[in-house]
């Protein structure tokens, strides 16, 4: 066995997986026509930042941990970065900053506490997590059942070689997450299935994020969105950010693992640049929509 660090297998051991953490990258585009959705990180901006802070390719696989709560042991000199929902953290006993590269020595432990605000924590390890890709991606699609299983205590996650060069920044300051995010929406494709009053109501009062909030989507509670026409819509393809309205009149915001096709009319779609904010809202928080 060689001791050359370039060829020695490096890994991360999961001591505590938090609250349903998964492995995510930028997902598997290009397979929707076969019924396979994009999946990947719900907050793609935080995933890309975490990878940049450790010098990884942006599509390297990281850990997405709802509410944080991770405990990991490292067997190598590792560089990691935490982004997304702010969480208190310690690396080998030392306090570890968010949004900055953090060093760990072999045998050291990274302990991430519970998120103080926001919802999803991202943890990138320099080199990327090297689990077997499925259709070109290491993302766990929780709806389709593709990709690695959810993390469990005892898992050994191999670290790959998806780093190139060193990061240019050692800190990326982040604005605090807003208490009530304002999400820009664009009408369509089925805004004509709703009354003019529904289109106004969607933007006049806030919607509360219910506890049915996972990687597939977020059920919202607020003003009733009345249909202008009855009947069924033949199934059609959806995108992340779609606001689908079932007969309850309460919209569902589609996130990364949304169904590839859906049969309820989509009144509007959240602007893609505002989806990272939506991804960080917790049950009980309110959001506002703006045309």
């Amino acid at each position: 066995m060689t001791t050359d660090p370039a060829t020695t297998a490096r890994s991360v051991r999961v001591v505590h997986p938090g609250f349903g953490a998964t492995v995510q990258d930028l997902g598997r585009p290009g397979h929707a026509a076969l019924g396979v959705g994009l999946s990947g990180a719900v907050d793609r901006r935080s995933l890309r930042l975490a990878n940049r802070l450790v010098g990884n390719h942006e599509h390297a696989a990281v850990i997405e941990a709802p509410l944080g709560g991770l405990v990991l042991d490292f067997d190598h000199h590792a560089t990691v970065a935490l982004t997304g929902a702010p969480c208190p953290a310690r690396a080998g006993g030392r306090e570890a900053d968010m949004y900055a590269p953090v060093r760990l020595a072999p045998g050291e432990r990274l302990t991430v506490g519970t998120a103080t605000e926001g919802l999803r924590l991202y943890l990138a390890v320099r080199g990327g997590l090297d689990l077997p890709p499925v259709l070109g991606s290491r993302s766990t699609d929780t709806l389709a059942g593709l990709g690695p299983a959810r993390l469990a205590a005892g898992d050994l996650l191999p670290v790959g070689g998806l780093a190139d060069g060193w990061p240019a920044a050692d800190f990326a300051p982040q604005r605090r997450l807003p208490a009530e995010p304002v999400l820009r929406i664009l009408p369509g494709p089925r805004e004509d299935w709703f009354t003019p009053e529904a289109l106004v109501a969607l933007c006049t009062q806030p919607y509360t994020v219910t506890d049915q909030n996972d990687r597939v989507g977020m059920r919202l509670a607020g003003p009733f969105l009345e249909r202008a026409r009855t009947g069924e819509l033949p199934s059609e393809a959806a995108v992340p950010g779609a606001l689908q309205v079932p007969p309850s009149g309460q919209p569902i915001l589609f996130l990364a693992d949304h169904p590839v096709t859906g049969g309820y009319p989509v009144i509007a779609a959240v602007h893609e640049d505002d989806l990272p904010q939506a991804a960080q809202t917790r049950p009980g928080q309110t959001v506002r929509f703006r045309w």
Partner: peptide, 14 residues
């Protein structure tokens, strides 16, 4: 055009 997704009456063009 990145992706085409056919359905019953529609084609999604991403």
């Amino acid at each position: 055009v990145l992706e085409l997704v056919p359905a019953a009456r529609t084609l999604l063009i991403r």
